[in-house]
């Protein structure tokens, strides 16, 4: 009877939380009390401790120079966005100038340049390449794995 009561209060999941000190004070006290009377749980906790103490808590070592270089790289990535927001007038002026230049170039070039004809075969090949590129470059869009599995099933 006593053994049965003891077995009912054995909760291996609690032992893990006990190891990581993640139990509420009352639960912690109960587990401690249980451990005093239960040899099975004591052995279980000892095994857990052996394993988790042996898994080293490691942070990959990065030198000060490496961290500086990384921080500089991040700042460099965000700087262009900030400049655009800080000087919107300059950005708009540059965009306007670009549009004007492209329009002028098109007007100058269009009458002289002969239209380029592509054979239907080349067009099809290009289209296939583009479709594949799209597939590979936008893998995030293919989150639905079922689609892939359906394709696989179709052979």
């Amino acid at each position: 009877m006593n053994d049965q009561r003891q077995a009912l209060s054995c909760q291996p999941q609690q032992l893990l939380l006990y190891y990581y000190a993640d139990l509420e004070a009352e639960d912690h006290r109960q587990v401690e009390q249980h451990l005093q009377s239960c040899t099975v749980c004591r052995a279980e906790l000892s095994e857990l401790q052996k394993l988790l103490d042996a898994v080293p808590v490691l942070t990959p070592e990065l030198s000060s120079v490496e961290l500086d270089r990384f921080s500089a790289r991040v700042v460099e990535q965000v700087q262009p966005q900030r400049r655009w927001f800080v000087r919107p007038a300059l950005g708009l002026a540059l965009a306007g100038a670009s549009v004007l230049l492209i329009t002028l170039n098109l007007h100058t070039l269009l009458p002289e340049s002969a239209p380029e004809h592509k054979s239907p075969l080349t067009m099809t090949v290009d289209q296939d390449v583009l479709l594949n590129l799209d597939l590979l470059q936008n893998l995030e869009l293919l989150e639905d794995l079922e689609l892939m599995q359906q394709l696989e099933r179709l052979g």
């Binding site: 942070t59 990959p60 990065l62 961290l67 500086d68 990384f70 921080s71 500089a72 991040v74 700042v75």
Partner: peptide, 15 residues
């Protein structure tokens, strides 16, 4: 300040 923030958190974030 942004660079200092990145510098302060980068080791743990990369880790």
């Amino acid at each position: 300040s942004f660079e200092a923030l990145v510098r302060a958190h980068s080791a743990r974030v990369i880790g």
